[in-house]
């Protein structure tokens, strides 16, 4: 073999480490929390971590949600009571908001395991 030197081996090892790291990230399919919105028109999905604004049509008009800073709330709705708006912001997996008159159901889905602790705080 041509002169293989110490530095070559060092670089070789570091590179292998980098590749192994990239493989690790490859399988890291962490269930990032998603906002699922079910309406008459179908089901819509959004990433909770990405700021967004979306409007949906229902029997009584339009309902819009806003996703900001990892939280979601009903921004505006054509329903009479506006209960859905007063529900405010939600951000945890499992939280939901519903606008019954307009048939819009907002739910945060995802892997519960990434919550700190992983076990229900309210278990006791």
């Amino acid at each position: 073999m041509k002169q293989i030197r110490l530095g070559d081996i060092a670089i070789f090892i570091v590179s292998i480490a980098i590749i192994a790291f990239s493989l690790g990230r490859f399988t890291d399919f962490s269930g990032e929390p998603q906002v699922h919105v079910r309406t008459d028109g179908g089901e819509f999905i959004y990433d909770l971590g990405v700021d967004a604004f979306a409007t949906f049509n229902g029997p009584v008009g339009e309902t819009s949600i806003e996703i900001k800073d990892g939280k979601v709330h009903v921004h505006d709705s054509d329903c009479r009571n506006k209960v859905c708006i007063s529900a405010g912001w939600v951000s945890r997996v499992g939280d939901w908001i519903i606008c019954l008159p307009n048939n819009v159901f907002v739910l945060i889905e995802g892997a519960v395991a990434q919550e700190t602790g992983g076990v229900d705080d309210t278990a006791f």
Partner: peptide, 17 residues
């Protein structure tokens, strides 16, 4: 700076990475 420790092989790998 590293000619003493690395041959062109190591340099090539480092460059590619």
């Amino acid at each position: 700076y590293g000619r003493r420790y690395v041959s062109l092989v190591g340099i090539s790998i480092a460059g590619a990475m």
